[in-house]
Design a protein around this nucleic acid. Structure first.
Lengths: 198, 198
DNA sequence: AATTTTGTATTACGTTCGTACTACCATAAG
DNA sequence: CTTATGGTAGTACGAACGTAATACAAAATT
């Protein structure tokens, strides 16, 4: 090998990371291959040496973003303190106003629902891993039962952040975040899963 | 006037309604003007006699979709029975599998967050009207305090439906809906707003 | 009833941007 | 100094939004 094994790998990684930001900022359909490559400091022709197609990169980038999100969980304080921290951070003004650095689900979820099968598969696997880690943190003794609950909490946070981003009235958008935090915290602190209330 | 006042108005309405379905199915960036017009039984050139730009149509269609969603509220049984019905319908398999006939927020929310200002403004107004009607139905005596609560319920349902649509594993997708229903019902039936739990 | 008028839609075009591919070049390893 | 690798630059072709010239259809006028 001429360039040393890492060269191409490192470039590939650079493309994936730059693409993660760009996709979350401009959307999947809103990001062209040429732009994605320019972001990585390359020209569009080099793209197909690294990925089969745009769909291939999108699926890879989505997987990478979710892995990063899962790994960020590990850096939080242990137990419910960490969970509470996560919720307040997730539903913060800073996160809302910087989609490129934030949650891929909040930025892209409806587009992922319409995306190629490979992207949906990558997303599904990534979310499952994230949810499991989240559940283990929330209820170390019984992560299995927390699984479903965490799914709902995550879904609620995604919808809340998207809604806050879509509103033209900033005051209302901030109120949505506030209420979302209260709501998520209540769910986390509820002793039983909501379906026990039925 | 040569064609009778209604002709152009009727055509415009046809475009808006067809666009509503197409946008929700293929996304905003995923729907071309040419396709939108073909859906309405016209050719692309006629478009600019009815709308200034694609953004103009998108904003109009979003407003129309939200108005329709609000009006659908009126056809439900009164009181909490109707609300419960709405939740089960919203988080149903049928709704998930037919985005074109469903909620515009669930189909487009993250794209709306990135859309032109006019679209975000139209969305904001439409959502506010919807939320107010919802709140009045949930708490006829004190719709003001229900306002914030309803925002959270709506956001949660949006995220839940999007998540269910994005998952490649059908079983998991169905579980997400189930859990979302339980979650939303618990919120509706909670006596106080969640922030009282803090 | 025939003709003019005018609003509506079609067809065709310009330009830009999208994905995909290929031929060529520069670099660094051997 | 050869050779393979990773990259650039350029090309093909279709789809995007938007505009303009043209055709058509229906109401109003005579």
């Amino acid at each position: 090998m001429r360039y040393g094994k890492e060269h191409k790998q490192a470039t590939r990684q650079r493309i994936i990371e730059a693409a993660g930001r760009r996709l979350k900022t401009d959307g999947i359909d809103g990001s062209g291959v040429s732009t994605l490559m320019t972001d990585a400091g390359l020209t569009n022709g080099a793209f197909y040496a690294h990925f089969e197609s745009k769909d291939d990169l999108v699926a890879t980038a989505v997987a990478h973003e979710l892995r990063a999100q899962r790994e960020a969980l590990g850096e939080l304080p242990p137990g419910r303190v960490g969970v509470e921290h996560l919720i307040r951070e997730y539903l913060s003004v800073g996160h809302r106003d910087n989609p490129g650095l934030g949650c891929p689900s909040a930025a892209l979820l409806d587009e992922i629902g319409r995306a190629a099968a490979a992207t949906k598969t990558a997303y599904t696997e990534g979310v499952l891993a994230f949810i499991e880690e989240f559940a283990a943190r929330l209820a170390p003794d019984d992560p299995q039962s927390a699984h479903a609950k965490v799914l709902s909490i995550y879904a609620g946070m995604i919808g809340t952040l998207q809604l806050s981003r879509a509103l033209a009235d900033r005051e209302l958008a901030d109120e949505v975040l506030e209420q979302g935090i209260a709501n998520a915290l209540a769910l986390v602190n509820a002793e039983s899963a909501p379906d026990a209330v039925r």
